[in-house]
Nucleic acid binder design. Structure first.
Lengths: 337, 337
DNA sequence: AATGGCGTTGCACACGTGTGCAGGTCCTCG
DNA sequence: CGAGGACCTGCACACGTGTGCAACGCCATT
């Protein structure tokens, strides 16, 4: 067999017109049960499959392709999110097309790819995507969902962490642990969510009668960045009793920095991270953190996208995902070494 | 503007035929430079983009979509691999469609999705994919690349870890550390690569004059599984001086299990993992392991796929990716606690 | 000036499918 | 027996693009 069979091949074999074949594979179309079974049998023998790309040429039937713009998949939470998004999209009959985008890449490349394959919609989870993507999507009528991004266009739906309660929660966890003077460790060029949470966190410190002893920001907010932050902390050690890190990787790196410097466990400051990645619960760290549930996050994204596709002209909504405090060892006093 | 502009709209605006527009957007087609610039200007004004789905209807021009069958993206190495594969595919003009597949899912669903969107090819990295996928791909002429899988079909290209040298390397690392009686920690239902490596490892132990004191296998080969393995190790503690874990997550869990049980650092057995995930280099673990370079792995996959697409009828080849020993703390004697 | 060649252009068909419309069949009811 | 309706089917067109073929214009060569 040189080329894959098409509807007319099936029609010839079943002794019907090509239209009948098309209708047999269309939900709710008008076909006699007898005819349908005969068509299906012929299709089975030939190994026929409907070509969705051809089907999607009719403007009424969208392509069902959804662009997933992603960066930094090495961040385990983001990888998990992509995994869940892909699963849910497939379950709803969509097909996720993975479009990696890194800082420095030309945004037009991503836009071109989306438009060339006239996707039904797009979900953007990469960090600091240029407003250009949002504008172009709006211009060409591509339904768009932004994850943890600042509002850039009224026609782009958003799913964002509840930073207002997250920031406050971080402060309260340190307060519970008896902290008075705390440090904030973050990134020089942070994301929208992190910036917003930091702002709320600082305000909450005041409310609770604590003081911000300082901020440590570096170029990276990964494990290595956390180790650097630990070095900076050690210089101000005696004036600080608690630390809030912008994310868990930073916090784990911070802990490894302390460990590397030989600081015994009982002398560690209270530490609160954010995200609750899998590693945070490992005994080596046992990190107190704020859980951002990727199940909820992904579900909200899919629903927002579906709404956006169904009502393209409605005003874009913003969905807020609440966070939960996960109390673990790094905010408990311990006697063990 | 209700619908997106098509080639005929651009043609009308530029005062040429639709064929001229098509040629203007086709590399190497015969168009006068003057005409081309006029067409491009008109296209720019209208925001016209070539519809690749329509283009791919012509059998000569393939869809450029490539299926990426993936499971367990929470495994950080696999997430990294998917990230790199997506980047390289995009760089070569392909579009990766992410198709998650988990143990228990119906393989026919994945096959249907691939054929419905008549993909140019497929890369399968999920664990233990049923032979059915390979057979169907071969039947319908879909170029296929299997990552770290057993050979199931002569027409499917494979990219596999060099298990022969990896297994031996693991044994040698333990030998270097002065081990005599070692334990193997793995999974009851392991993957092809892991099984093969284990086989070589056991044979190499004999060669080097070491003995296999036992095997610990559980249902899962993640961090939790490693902690369970540590419990089993402690029972046979005095008869064992080295451990090889099937992968790094298992090894890290093993270490956390020791830590949880209060075993001081200097009493740990020598430990060798496999993969060299990011966490392995963190000071909390400092794990000796075998590095499987995802850059090399992904590049080999793309090249194998490209070869397969270019010569669909050639015999499928198998590419072997070598591993490198990464010597770290868990195979060094230490005095610190 | 005639001829040949080359570069450019348009026509028409192909790719694989969905669907409005009209015609056909068959059943039911009056 | 006739009328009407419900159900099914095929024709023909549409979706947006690539490309073989032939025609055309222009230039250089003879």
């Amino acid at each position: 067999m040189s080329r894959s069979p098409r509807a007319s091949d099936v029609a010839a074999r079943a002794g019907v017109s090509r239209s009948a074949v098309s209708r047999a594979f269309t939900e709710g179309a008008s076909v006699a049960p007898d005819t349908r079974t005969r068509i299906m049998a012929a299709a089975e023998e030939l190994g026929y499959r409907v070509n969705y790309l051809a089907r999607s040429l009719k403007e009424a039937a969208p392509s069902k392709l959804v662009a997933l713009v992603v960066s930094d998949m090495d961040h385990s939470l983001r990888a998990r999110l992509v995994d869940l998004l892909a699963r849910r999209l497939v379950a709803r009959g969509f097909r996720p097309v993975l479009l990696p985008w890194s800082q420095g890449d030309d945004p037009h490349r991503v836009i071109d790819m989306m438009l060339n394959y006239n996707v039904s919609g797009a979900i953007v989870t990469s960090d600091t995507p240029p407003g250009e993507i949002s504008q172009q999507c709006a211009r060409f009528g591509v339904p768009l969902v932004l994850v943890n991004k600042a509002p850039v266009d009224a026609r782009a739906a958003r799913v964002v962490q509840d930073t207002a309660s997250a920031g406050r929660m971080a402060a309260e966890l340190l307060h519970e642990a008896g902290c008075r003077r705390v440090l904030y460790a973050g990134q020089t060029r942070a994301s929208f969510t992190i910036d917003d949470r930091r702002r709320v966190f600082c305000a909450a410190l005041d409310d609770l009668g604590m003081t911000l002893a300082g901020e440590v920001t570096g170029p990276s907010q990964n494990h290595a960045g956390g180790m650097v932050a630990a070095g900076r902390y050690l210089a101000a050690k005696d004036r600080v009793d608690g630390v809030h890190c912008a994310n868990d990787f930073l916090a784990l790196g911070f802990i490894d920095g302390l460990r590397h410097a030989g600081v015994p466990r009982r002398d560690w400051p209270a530490i609160v991270g954010c995200d609750d990645i899998a590693e945070a619960s490992w005994p080596a760290y046992d990190l107190t953190t704020l859980r951002q549930d990727p199940e909820l996050l992904s579900e909200a994204c899919i629903e927002a996208l579906a709404t956006r596709i169904a009502h393209p002209n409605s005003l874009a909504e913003t969905r807020t995902i609440s966070v939960a405090a996960v109390r673990r060892g790094t905010t408990r006093k311990t006697d063990i070494d």
